[in-house]
Simulated scan of single mutants.
Amino acid sequence: MVVVPIRRIAITGETVLHQPALTVAEITLEIKELVSDMFDTMTAAPGVGLAATQVGVGLRIFVYDYEQDEIHYRGVAINPTLEVGEILDLQADEDTDSEGCLSIPGERYPLKRSDTATLHATDLAGSPYTIAATGWLARIFQHEYDHLDGVLYADRLIKPYQRELKKVYKYEGWGVPGQSWMPGEDDLEA
């Protein structure tokens, strides 16, 4: 039997989620193992992106796995930078702009993001790459990049949704350090 190394996912309030992550100085065996674990954790959750901060590691790394227009995008972004296009309309649509987060499990709220983003990052081999993304892939990159800066999508919500989410935090007991969930064991998902 093969044991898949799945890590616990930090819930909002955990300190590492709310502070900027550190630059990866070198791609070591430990970094490669972390990335492998992050892919397994993201798949088990299930999710389409996962930042290292969400598994309690304060490094500038995220993974993604998403299919768009018959192209499968799966990769790791180490020390990424992100160029974000203009947000054309400030009003988020509840049907097309609703977003979730594995660190705020089970909740989804509309958030307007740019429809375009260009990701510049390094892969596990240390090679730089660039992806010009549109649509949901651009949203995924913006969401995960925010995590590396200590920003959760909930921090960007407009007031009616912020108030609603604060009630959820209070009910769930979230917003304080020390809370996490385990994909495949706990009955939670984004």
Rank of each mutant, 00 (worst) to 15 (best):
N79T: 10
E86F: 07
A44D: 13
Y153V: 04
E67K: 09
V16K: 02
S114T: 02
G58Y: 07
M42E: 01
R156S: 10
H18S: 13
E107C: 12
R74P: 09
S127D: 10
T118V: 13
E99I: 14
L148E: 00
Y169W: 00
A77N: 04
P160E: 07
P105A: 07
A117T: 04
E67D: 08
K159E: 13
R139N: 02
G49S: 13
V2D: 03
D37R: 09
K170W: 04
G49F: 08
R139H: 07
E107S: 14
A138C: 13
I87D: 08
C101H: 01
S98N: 11
L148W: 00
E164G: 12
T28H: 14
E33V: 10
M182D: 05
W174I: 13
I6H: 14
V4D: 06
I87P: 00
D146Y: 09
K170E: 06
Y73S: 01
G178F: 12
Q91D: 07
Q68A: 01
I71K: 09
S98A: 03
G184L: 13
Y161T: 00
K159L: 05
D97F: 15
A52C: 12
A154K: 01
Q162I: 04
L50D: 05
T43R: 15
A25H: 10
A51Q: 13
V16S: 06
R156N: 07
T134A: 11
T28M: 14
M182A: 07
H147K: 14
P160C: 13
V63W: 01
E94F: 06
V168W: 02
E26Y: 10
A51C: 15
D123N: 07
V76N: 02
T12H: 13
L82R: 05
E107R: 09
Y161V: 08
G175F: 05
S180L: 07
E33L: 10
E26R: 14
I104S: 01
P20T: 00
D37K: 14
S114I: 00
E14R: 03
D69A: 13
Y169I: 07
D37M: 12
P183R: 01
L50W: 03
A154T: 15
M38C: 04
D69G: 08
Y145K: 04
T28R: 15
